[in-house]
Design a binder for these strands. Structure first.
Lengths: 131, 131
DNA sequence: TTTGTATATACCTTGACACGCATATGCTCT
DNA sequence: AGAGCATATGCGTGTCAAGGTATATACAAA
């Protein structure tokens, strides 16, 4: 189990991580909310723990798990190299939309500077290939 | 092969994607730069294409592959839910460092407002558990 | 100590990929 | 048409990880 990417490739693990965003949780709570058998939860938590995604503290018989930030930052760092690229694409799309915008009917590469957060997706994607 | 996360879990595929950031490449160029057998490259490209990470155009016998932005945005969107969390942690670390900063020796929750890009990692991580 | 609860681990089976190798398809040039 | 290059695909194999079931460990309460 090498990289952080293999860790988050597993849907159940992503579910666990999402659960832990709101607050720390015990194994039992995770088990109930996600409706998965306890050994499964424990195994995934072990993987997540060893990969540094979570850490746990002992509370009597319970173990409380919470998120750790580093691996997420690692993913984000990887993503960085593609950001320039995709924001360029977004800009291209934007120019294209500007061009067909009735409020700027002529050539104009647009004059209103929009403060764009390059980190956000511009639209949802639900074109085919879901299966 | 469901999610984008499974796609990028494969190291060779990530290598291919990184290669394509700089410019579009033919299969043969990828093959040579990454030193992997041609069928392997083609197979990974197929997966990447079907997942929407790349698209190709035909140039005689060559096929030129280039990146598509959408799947990366999808990963970025997923990461979003954890950003608040990890920037909170960075802030906590920051406050902690402030507290032991000789220039602000007393209580002070710091007064200098630093413009922080929450999207960047604050440090490298290479603590144990790599295996 | 016994019983109950919470969590971790061991063992087994199954399935999904990734790879190597061989081969097919497609295009170009002579 | 035939030779040669570029890319795709099919098949057999090995590996590894996920899930299920059973069991072990640890703590708590009686």
């Amino acid at each position: 189990m090498e990289s952080v990417f293999e860790i988050i490739a597993e849907p159940n693990r992503r579910a666990i991580l999402s659960l832990l965003v709101s607050a720390q949780q015990s194994v039992g709570e995770i088990e109930r909310q996600l409706r998965m058998p306890q050994p499964t939860v424990s195994k995934h938590l072990r993987v997540l723990r060893e990969a540094g995604f979570v850490e746990s503290t002992v509370d009597a018989q319970r173990r409380l798990y919470r998120l750790k930030p580093e691996p997420f930052q690692e993913v984000d760092t990887w993503l960085t190299q593609f950001r320039r690229f995709w924001s360029a694409h977004v800009d291209a799309l934007e120019r294209h939309l500007d061009r067909m915008d009735p409020s700027t009917p002529e050539k104009s590469t647009s004059s209103k500077k929009k403060t764009r957060k390059t980190t956000r997706p511009d639209r949802e994607r639900d074109k085919g290939e879901t299966k």
